[in-house]
Simulated scan of single mutants.
Amino acid sequence: MKVRLEWKYRSSKGVETVFRSDEMAAAQGVQIAEDIERTKRVKELLFIDSYDDSVWTMKEMKAYLKSIETEPHDITVYFDGGFDVGNRKTGLGCVIYYSQNGKSYRLRQNAQLDGLVSNNEAEFAALHLCVQELEFMEVRNIPVRFSGDSKIVINGMSGEWPVIETELVRWADRIEEKISRMGIQTDYELIPRKENFEADRLATQALKGIEITGTSSI
């Protein structure tokens, strides 16, 4: 979860004003909020959820973080698809970074598919692979950031652009159905290709028939 802090400050002379922070991870927000409270000049301090602008108190935020401690959380997903026009094969790459039990992990998964018709369809299929992996991880009812370099997928899934092609609509519908069933709060982020190098490499390896799967601590 990403949050912004909002606190009412009262000076030693009784002058009050309101400060607002930049967006940050919820756990980091709690640490900063605790430091702010030590000044003894905070009249009110709230956490604003960046996803839906819901408001949390310090007590509520700590309880939430405690409740998800043993489950995968702070999840960022990177996806990429590659399509070989010559042999009509598709390579899918998926990288998932997450926290659990106070540790950080990276999951890597790739796959090769037949029967797709374009690179855009490969990109949607790669995102679907990632959502499947989240389902296997039993991710439920938490925010997830999906990062990719495909404008068609990112803008299509976020609602910025319409998804028109029939084969792409089918993938988008399948993805949306899974995400809705899992209760995931989506945050789609378009990133430069160079920042998506891990997922891109996995997709390329899949096209070459090299299978990669596994989770490691980082």
Rank of each mutant, 00 (worst) to 15 (best):
V95F: 02
I96Q: 08
Y97M: 09
Y97G: 05
Y98T: 08
S99E: 15
S99T: 14
Q100P: 09
Q100Y: 06
N101K: 15
G102P: 06
K103A: 09
K103C: 05
S104K: 14
S104H: 12
R106N: 02
N110R: 08
N110F: 06
N110W: 07
Q112N: 12
L113Y: 11
G115V: 08
V117Y: 08
S118Q: 06
N120T: 04
E121W: 03
A122Y: 02
E123A: 03
A125I: 02
A125V: 03
A126K: 03
L127P: 03
L127Y: 01
L129Q: 09
L129E: 11
L129V: 06
Q132F: 05
E133Q: 12
E133V: 09
L134Y: 05
L134G: 10
F136P: 03
M137C: 04
M137L: 14
E138V: 04
V139T: 11
R140N: 10
R140S: 12
N141D: 13
N141F: 11
N141K: 13
N141T: 14
N141I: 09
I142L: 14
I142Y: 05
I142K: 15
P143G: 12
V144L: 04
V144N: 07
F146C: 01
S147Q: 11
G148H: 03
D149E: 06
S150F: 00
V153C: 01
V153T: 02
N155H: 11
S158H: 05
G159H: 04
G159W: 03
W161R: 04
E165D: 13
E165P: 02
E165N: 13
L168T: 02
L168P: 00
W171G: 01
A172Y: 01
R174V: 01
I175M: 07
I175F: 03
E176Y: 03
E177N: 14
E177I: 09
E177M: 15
S180W: 14
S180H: 15
S180T: 15
R181T: 13
M182F: 08
M182Y: 06
D187S: 10
Y188Q: 12
E189S: 09
E189C: 11
E195C: 05
E195W: 01
